[in-house]
Amino acid sequence: MNDLAFQLLLALDASIRLAAPLMLCAMAGIFSERSGIVDISLEGKLLASAFVAAAVTAATGSVWVGLGAAMLSSMMLSVVHGFATITHRGDQVVSGLAINMLATGFTIVVGHAVFARGGQTPALTDNQRFGPITLPFADQLNAVPVLGPIYKELLSGHSLLVYMALIAVPMTAFVLYRSRFGLRLRAVGEVPEAVDTAGISVFWLRYRALMFGGLLCGIAGAYLSTASGAGFVREMSAGKGYIALAAVIFGNWQPFRALGACFMFGFLEAMTARLEGVDFPVVGVLPTQLMQALPYLLTVLLLAGFIGRPTPPAAIGQPYVK
């Protein structure tokens, strides 16, 4: 096993871990945006549910209760978003911004009031977290050339929530393309009038889409604070919600392509960490901070039509008025 390949394997492994919350949020974004509702509140939902997961886990001792609470809290924020944008036809971007700010303020204020640790939650012990799961025979198969290490290092040893993220993608695709709900969801984001005249409630459909997204964001939040980390740190979402949004756009609002974008962004992040300070021949030290901006830059170029042209759902951003 040569060393460079092994390093690459480790980087890929890190990419999966870094991409997992992005995937969940991106799928949430797809649900919301395919139904015609702009969702920049992914960030806020991610942050709020990360806090709730850690706080509830710390309080109850059960990481599962924490996960449930995280999903619930994130869903409640989705309902707020829906109340503002669907029921009251408020501006979707403004509502999203409000939720992001609410989440920032709420997590710190409540965290401080409850735990008095400057906004952090108490550190979680190992059994209060979603620990790594070793897939069957990972160690035994390690000896198999190439495939063995890939199985052990890349596929095995992630937390349950990473596997949930990996499952969320095909599940989203299945719901979107194979179910009645998905058919109507895609229709309502393109031509809501078509759904309405077919005798289906546009409002309820969009609410459900948002709540579904909230659920997924909740898992992502729990991943940040109870799997990847061991407790909540203020502003721990650190723009991941926005990167997920970029991945949705990059993936042209399609689950598998968004997955690809999430991997790419995760890989970029993993490489950035690894290449920090490394002096390359010819190019010298890479400006790692600039590499972190690459997902955003690529998204801008994509949106401007310089690398293909994304086609957002036709009715996105417009409140539905009969």
Partner: peptide, 29 residues
């Protein structure tokens, strides 16, 4: 009713457009 402005989803197939609202079950098959 056939509306003046078509109530069709341009990105959908004919099949998907026709079945919208009468899918006949939670799954589409």
């Amino acid at each position: 009713m056939v509306h003046q402005h078509f109530m069709l989803v341009p990105t959908f197939s004919v099949l998907e457009n026709v079945m919208l609202g009468t899918e006949g079950g939670a799954l589409l098959a």
